[in-house]
């Protein structure tokens, strides 16, 4: 009897552990606000976290940073989230196809730049990306920065030649930065805001001239099925409001 009872209690313990792990730690006394945000927003949004939590002490903001296409796919697949910040309209619209999104607002803009490894001065502008034999890394076609880069290359008439030089399609903008900084690629196209912090020293930035009208624009929206709509709306307001503008401006983003 004792043995079977201990086996049974083992099963219960195991079940408790599994369930306990799926309910995030620290949830006992705080509400969690799940924010799915584009990878390029990582530093700016992290800056905003402390202020929001100070204003709402009962809340713990939990970020999920990834390529917007991954986040949109998660939302379409029903993943729980309260707020979605996308790096382009296409992925926001894709997420909205799930009927889970509130109307979106544009809250920031960015700029495309070409990066090369530091010390390489052979690339002067977008036309050089079409040079035969160049090893170019872009984000994938579905990744916002990859879509912007293709559009910009199209604008300067180098799309096909440059795409022939692509050696890898990365799944988010940080993947592109990493490959170029490591010297494994000759050039990449990223957001200006990504050339920051420690990695900036390993990169040289070249302006993406001739595609000024290709302007990356970020959109944010609360999820309609958020269990805490007021908090979700408050976070969206924070990002789109003056505090958000200041934090984003400090990290190099442009006003909408």
């Amino acid at each position: 009897m004792t043995r079977s009872r201990s086996a049974a209690s083992g099963v219960i313990l195991l079940a408790a552990v599994v369930l306990g792990c799926s309910a995030a730690p620290g949830a006992a006394d705080k509400k969690e606000l799940h924010v799915s945000a584009a990878m390029s927003l990582k530093e700016a949004f992290t800056d905003l976290e402390a202020g929001f939590e100070a204003e709402h002490p009962e809340v713990d903001v939990v970020f999920n940073f990834a390529g917007s296409q991954i986040l949109a796919a998660q939302i379409v697949a029903g993943a729980p989230a309260d707020v979605f910040a996308s790096a382009d309209r296409a992925q926001m619209e894709r997420a909205a196809g799930s009927q889970r999104m509130q109307p979106a607002r544009t809250f920031a803009k960015n700029r495309l730049v070409i990066v090369t490894p530091a010390g390489d001065s052979s690339i002067q502008g977008p036309a050089d990306l079409a040079r035969p034999g160049l090893r170019l890394v872009l984000a994938g076609e579905a990744v916002p920065v990859g879509a912007y880069a293709r559009e910009a290359l199209n604008r300067v008439g180098q799309r096909d030649a440059a795409l022939a030089n692509v050696v890898s399609n990365e799944e988010n903008v940080r993947g592109v930065i990493g490959k170029v900084a490591a010297g494994e690629a000759d050039a990449g196209v990223v957001y200006a805001t990504d050339v920051a912090g420690e990695v900036a020293g390993k990169l040289r930035t070249v302006a993406f001239a001739g595609a000024d009208d290709v302007v990356p624009a970020y959109e944010i929206a609360a999820l309609a099925d958020s269990p805490q709509p007021a908090l979700a709306a408050a976070f969206v307001d924070l990002v789109a409001g003056p505090a958000g503008a200041a934090a984003l401006g400090k990290r190099g983003f442009l006003p909408p």
Partner: peptide
């Protein structure tokens, strides 16, 4: 090490992973 490029280094597992986000 090899990156992700269709026809050159995008093997089936990489294709599965990429497809997960744009063609489930």
């Amino acid at each position: 090490f090899a990156g992700n490029l269709q026809g050159r280094t995008q093997t089936m597992p990489l294709a599965v992973y990429e497809a997960l986000h744009d063609s489930p």
